[in-house]
Design a protein around this nucleic acid. Structure first.
Lengths: 122, 122
DNA sequence: TAATTGTTATACCTAGAATATAACAACCAT
DNA sequence: ATGGTTGTTATATTCTAGGTATAACAATTA
């Protein structure tokens, strides 16, 4: 699993970490049932504190992407709840779509971006 | 212009403000060339500090949504730069799409959300 | 002249992000 | 059984961002 953190970004490290794990799961670089590196190991390889990784893992667990097994560590286990997922996605999407409309992006242009990204990420 | 701030949200006030102005412009509640309330007036009506509104206006100006005229205040003036807008949209969208793919959302389901939101916001 | 415009400056407080140690129970390999 | 590793929790510290509070400025407007 390739993780790259931009320490000059205004985005929190644990958020960058979370997003990259999203992408790793989406692209099947990590598959359902497989283990993630231990919090200490990952913290060491990317050069951040253990607690920063732990926070990323904790939020991923809380949002239904990981389950924690004492003997196997953090294991990919995605809770599928389509209704909730659609609602969340809609809420996240709303300000982005509004921004795009202001900037003159058409409905088709936005959906082309979705197509591009969906291909890129699956 | 109806602005509603959730003071219990984890989202920063100036970000909520920014997003609602996006939506107001997208839905033509405020139109190109029209003035927004003064920073002091808006701060007063929604019950926050002047500088919080000023920060929202400043970022909107920096991102090409407003132009500031000394005599007319903050005026809606959207800079259309489709290439940059598409790139930004793609960057914002990427982690969201990844999240959706993990949760089992199909390409069509996501595009339906885009359709719904585009209709709602234009 | 008096009031309002965005803007800037300064100071303060609080919460969140990140780091640093340290310890815990549970597990596993040797 | 010992030693090392797992996630987790606790405590403390530093730094930054968000928000508030006054105050002042030049430019504009009534």
């Amino acid at each position: 699993m390739y993780i790259e953190i931009d320490f000059n970004s205004d985005e929190a490290i644990y958020v960058q970490l979370r997003n990259q794990i999203f992408m790793a799961i989406a692209t099947s670089q990590i598959k359902e049932g497989e283990s993630l590196p231990s919090v200490r190991a990952l913290a060491d390889t990317i050069g951040v504190n253990m607690h920063t990784v732990n926070k990323a893992y904790s939020t991923l667990r809380q949002d239904g992407f990981l389950k924690v097994d004492r003997r196997r560590g953090a294991v990919v286990a995605v809770d599928i709840d389509k209704l909730t997922s659609m609602e969340k996605m809609k809420a996240y999407l709303r300000p982005l779509i509004a921004r795009g409309i202001c900037k003159g992006l058409t409905q088709e242009e936005i959906k082309e971006l979705v197509d591009d990204l969906y291909d890129e990420l699956s």
